[in-house]
Structure formats: C-alpha cells, structure tokens
C-alpha cells in the first residue's frame, strides 16, 4: 500500500475549498536508463478519481510527465458533507482507495 497525504479542510456550507493530495509513487517514466542498455519499466499512476458520497467530483488522467510522488490539488464547492474517496490505479494494476470525512458546517 502506498502512503498518501490528504489535506481536506473543513468547510462552511457554500464555501469553495482546496483539496490537496500527495501519493507516494515513483511515477517511473519508462525512459530512465538502468545502465545496461535497458530502461526501468514504466509504472505510472494513470488515473485518479475523487468521489463524494459515491459521486465523482474530480478525475485526472496522468502521464509520465507528472512528477514522482504525484501532487494533485483541486477545489470543491461544499454543498454537503460525507465520505470522500480517493482512488487511483497504476500501470502494474495496483489500485488503492483512501477514505476521508468531508465535514461541512
């Protein structure tokens, strides 16, 4: 399981807040030379989805040009609170979902 850091602030109803995520992942481009003429195989997080109470609120398709340990920040308008999930899948087929409570006052 990759480690992940999620900064999900509490929000007042109607407020727009910024959500920041940092995922531990090498984002191996597939172009880095091993030194023996071959390259380290590509391993990229391809897809990242954030849902609130099961409804998609943000999605990203990522490519090798995203830095190692990808940082992704986006905004949400706080209309309702609930369970926020953050899911991603990489080239090796590993998928992970993290959950956090979105508190709206």
């Amino acid at each position: 399981m990759a480690r992940v850091l999620i900064n999900l602030p509490k929000a007042k109803r109607g407020e727009i807040v910024e959500i920041r995520t940092l995922i531990q992942h090498p984002m191996e481009t597939g172009y880095r030379p091993k030194g023996d003429g071959t390259s380290f195989p590509r391993d990229i997080i391809r897809n990242f989805v954030c849902k609130l109470n099961g409804i998609e609120v943000f999605r990203a398709d990522l490519f090798p040009a995203i830095a190692a340990n990808p940082f992704i920040a986006f905004t949400i308008k706080a209309e309702e609170g609930g369970t926020m999930t953050f899911s991603w899948i990489d080239d090796r087929g590993r998928s992970q979902t993290e959950t956090a409570d979105f508190i709206v006052e």
Binding site: R3, L5, I6, N7, R20, L22, Q24, A68, N69, F71
Partner: peptide, 14 residues
C-alpha cells in the same frame, strides 16, 4: 513548510 505537500513526510511515516 506544508507537511501534506512534503514528500519527505513519507519517510517520517515509514
């Protein structure tokens, strides 16, 4: 400055 933006924190957690 921001621990949630600093990838060095992964090592701290580990």
């Amino acid at each position: 400055r921001d621990d949630t933006a600093n990838p060095g924190m992964f090592a701290v957690l580990e």
